[in-house]
Measured scan of single mutants.
Amino acid sequence: NQASVVANQLIPIQTALTLVMMRSEVVTPVGIPAEDIPRLVSMQVNRAVPLGTTLMPDMVKGYA
């Protein structure tokens, strides 16, 4: 099973992502693949992302 990127904390809207905000976890449905974590650093979320939420491509500006 492929690991996805999951929020390690509440990430407020417009926040630039850092490594400490994300973790990898095998979840359903599958979100952004964990191997993309380095690419996500400094990208902004376009909505508030609660703790434990799987990051989906449409939540990160410039990802999809």
Rank of each mutant, 00 (worst) to 15 (best):
P57C: 08
L55Y: 03
M22D: 01
V20W: 14
A64S: 14
L51N: 15
A16I: 10
M22H: 00
P38T: 12
L19K: 06
M59Q: 03
R39A: 07
V60D: 01
A7C: 04
A64T: 13
K61W: 10
S24W: 07
I11C: 03
V41C: 11
R23S: 06
E25T: 07
M22N: 00
I37E: 01
Q2K: 08
I11L: 07
I13D: 15
A7M: 04
A16K: 09
A64E: 13
L51E: 13
E35A: 11
D36W: 08
T15D: 03
V30D: 07
V30M: 11
Y63P: 03
V30Q: 15
A34G: 08
P50C: 07
A34S: 14
R23Y: 05
A48E: 12
I37Q: 04
P38H: 15
Q14P: 02
P50T: 10
E35L: 13
P33K: 08
P57M: 06
A3K: 10
S4I: 02
V26F: 09
V6D: 02
A64W: 06
T15H: 07
P57K: 12
T53D: 12
T53P: 01
P33L: 08
V41P: 00
A48C: 12
P57S: 11
V26M: 12
G52K: 02
R47I: 10
P38A: 13
V41M: 08
P33N: 09
Q14R: 11
M43C: 08
A7V: 06
M56Y: 08
N8Q: 10
V20M: 15
E35K: 08
M43S: 06
Y63F: 11
A64C: 15
I11F: 03
M21H: 08
A48R: 12
A64Q: 13
P50S: 13
P29E: 06
Q44C: 15
A34V: 08
T15E: 07
L40H: 00
M56L: 13
M59L: 05
V41L: 14
M21Q: 02
Q14S: 14
Y63V: 04
S24D: 06
L55I: 14
L19P: 06
G31T: 02
Q14D: 15
T53R: 10
V26T: 10
V27N: 02
V49H: 01
T53F: 14
N1D: 15
L51K: 12
T28I: 09
R47S: 12
V41E: 06
G52W: 04
T54F: 03
L55T: 01
T18W: 04
L55S: 01
V49S: 01
M56N: 05
A34M: 06
G31C: 04
N1W: 12
T18F: 04
N46I: 10
N1P: 15
S42A: 11
K61L: 13
T28A: 12
L10E: 09
K61A: 13
G62E: 09
R39S: 09
V41H: 02
N46V: 11
V20H: 13
V26N: 12
V6P: 00
S4F: 03
P57W: 10
I13E: 14
A7K: 02
Q2V: 13
P29G: 04
Q44K: 14
Q14T: 12
P50E: 13
P33C: 09
Q9L: 10
I37V: 06
T18N: 05
V41I: 13
D58I: 09
A16T: 13
V5D: 01
L55R: 01
T53H: 09
M56K: 08
L17N: 02
P33E: 04
K61S: 14
L19G: 05
A3Q: 09
M22R: 01
A34N: 06
V6N: 02
V26K: 06
E35H: 12
S24M: 07
A7W: 04
A16E: 08
A3E: 13
E25K: 09
Q2S: 13
I32M: 02
S24A: 15
N1G: 15
V26E: 15
L10M: 15
T54S: 04
V20E: 07
P29C: 06
P38G: 12
K61Q: 14
L40I: 12
R39C: 15
P33S: 09
I37Y: 02
N46E: 11
N1C: 07
K61F: 11
D58Q: 11
N46P: 02
A48F: 11
V5A: 10
M21N: 06
L51Q: 13
V41Q: 06
P50A: 11
V45T: 13
S4W: 03
V5P: 00
P38K: 13
Q14F: 13
Y63Q: 03
V20N: 15
A16G: 07
I37M: 13
V41S: 03
G31N: 01
N8C: 09
V60C: 02
T15P: 03
R23K: 10
E25V: 09
D36G: 05
D58T: 09
L10H: 15
A64P: 11
V45F: 01
R39L: 12
I32P: 00
P38Q: 14
N1I: 15
D36C: 14
R47E: 07
M21I: 03
S24Q: 11
R47A: 09
N46Y: 13
G62H: 11
Y63S: 04
Q9N: 07
T15Q: 08
D58L: 08
S24V: 09
Q2G: 14
V60Y: 02
M56S: 06
V60E: 01
A3T: 08
P33Y: 08
G52H: 07
E35F: 09
D58G: 09
